[in-house]
Design a binder for these strands. Structure first.
Lengths: 225, 225
DNA sequence: TCACGAGTGTCAGGTCGCTGACAAAGTCGG
DNA sequence: CCGACTTTGTCAGCGACCTGACACTCGTGA
């Protein structure tokens, strides 16, 4: 029950509208909760999606490619959902999903998801907002990576992905986020540590001097013609 | 009138549902048509979006960054729409839009757009599909660019953006699509031409041997764990 | 039809990031 | 508390891509 309310809150972050008690019952009936340990696979690329996932805690990485060229498209955090797009477009999952930390997710069967959002326009609107927000994020990622030296890419990804000024991922994970190689990323990270901008631990990066990191990231504030 | 029907067809490509005659009247009342010459600016990054644009003909490039680091996030083609995301998220335009060819666009004021889609659920659903489709495309672009050698990136972009086996853009534009520099891209293109895969002209690339280009692009067919 | 701007072709030199490898340090289950 | 595994730190060599430049060709508008 409480889970259903939480899902309703999270779809379309920041918005406030609630579900009615009857909605909650409807949701809770089909809503299942699944725990994943770090490294567990949530779904695999190439399969048709049968359910929509909502992250409750932890973080889930979306992986594309294989072997050394495996790349992380995005990291899902609590409140994020996935599987809806490939369901909507009736396509196979274009990426695999894997827990980057011990995580808890909710699973909604496709049919239920569609029914729910078909019946409740204001919920559908928040869904639309959620998808739009992911699109904006994905495009921002393109801007952050295209034609930018690795030192800046690393700074940007640290700033973007850090929660409470901490990044609980291995440097190999950071490299996969950038489509770069671990030794190259390590060189940048070591340099940032020596300069006192971050603190590096085992599978952990902590932000010490956020302002300096922002300078390092060197984002354009405005894009002039 | 005919314009309004066209917009209804295009939102959410491939779907067939029509608007009712009254919808058409409603749309046509506020729908304006604007012509752009190559190089004309449609909207500028940093501004709040006041309207949603639908491309009727030609192509519109979405640019981020400034000067030599200007990068193309996406190329809008007939049927594509833009401006809706930043309206929905109530944010400033994160990129500028500029005509890459002589183009014709339709403009819908935000208010009308919201009203239309609020009143017509099946239209709203196709809008959702359109946004989801753009998200999938944006993510595919990340996969196509991250950690991939330039020779493959160029082949992929030619295959993806070509219409009728032709790409009517300058090599500088192709370079901006990749976040790479023109001389580097030119080297790859010259090589492809020498090998007979493409034909290069003034502001034009034609695909000759699509199969060989696909091989050159070297995309992973499936992503294994 | 001529001049100018836009686009293409090319190059030498420099730098950045990759390759492949190895040692050292941290973590965790048994 | 030990051994296996994961993660970090580092390096030399190399290749890919960038920098900045210049000549040449193609359109286009006066």
């Amino acid at each position: 029950m409480r889970q259903a309310a939480w899902v309703a809150r999270c779809v379309g972050r920041g918005s406030v509208p609630h579900l009615s008690p009857s909605d909650l019952e409807l949701l809770a009936a089909e809503l299942s909760t699944v725990r994943f340990s770090r490294g567990d696979v949530v779904f695999v690329a190439g399969q048709m999606s049968t359910a929509v996932w909502v992250v409750r805690s932890g973080s889930i990485g979306l992986f594309a490619g294989a072997g050394a060229d495996r790349v992380i498209l995005s990291i899902l955090r609590p409140g994020d959902l996935d599987g809806d797009v490939s369901m909507l477009l009736n396509m196979a999952q274009p990426y695999s999903a894997e827990a980057l930390e011990d995580s808890i997710c909710h699973r909604l069967d496709n049919e239920l998801f569609v029914k729910m959002f078909g019946q409740h326009p204001e919920l559908a609107r928040r869904w639309l907002t959620a998808v739009a927000s992911r699109l904006a994020t994905s495009q921002q990622r393109l801007v952050d990576l295209l034609g930018v030296p690795l030192a800046q890419q690393v700074a940007r990804v640290i700033l973007d992905e850090a929660v409470d000024d901490e990044l609980p991922y291995s440097q190999a994970t950071v490299a996969a986020l950038l489509g770069a190689r671990r030794p190259s990323v390590n060189k940048v990270i070591s340099d940032l540590q020596r300069r006192g901008l971050i603190d590096v631990g085992y599978r952990s990066i902590k932000v010490i001097d956020a302002a300096a990191l922002v300078a390092q990231a060197g984002r354009q504030t405005a894009a002039r013609t």
